[in-house]
Amino acid sequence: MPAGTLYRGREGMWSWVAHRVTGVLIFFFLFVHVLDTALVRVSPEAYDDTIAIYKTPLVNVMEYGLVAAILFHALNGLRVIAVDFWSKGARYQKQMLWTVMGVWIVLMAGAFYPVLQHTLRTLFGS
């Protein structure tokens, strides 16, 4: 292969990849989530026993990951809409991606304690 011809991608390509990956992950979670919610039609105990899994430390951390995926997908989705419908969208797509990442970091920092408080309290006491 000739040197320097392999497209390694830049902001546009990697945000596209991340949008796909987060989208697929969120969709698989959505299946599980509708199924676990459907247990309210079985019995309150069946539902509460299953929701207890969501309160274990490992799954609680995965919920933080879910929030991370959803926030990125939502913010980057708004960027995609801006690229498609705003006349200057394509020109500012990089700046918009860095804005997305900035907002994402702020929101993830803000969500850290609220989302993980159940685990933090069980592990380290209130």
Binding site: Y54, K55, V115, L116
Partner: peptide
Amino acid sequence: GVSKIGFAFV
């Protein structure tokens, strides 16, 4: 957060 979620909450 997730602590409050249960049948009664739904």
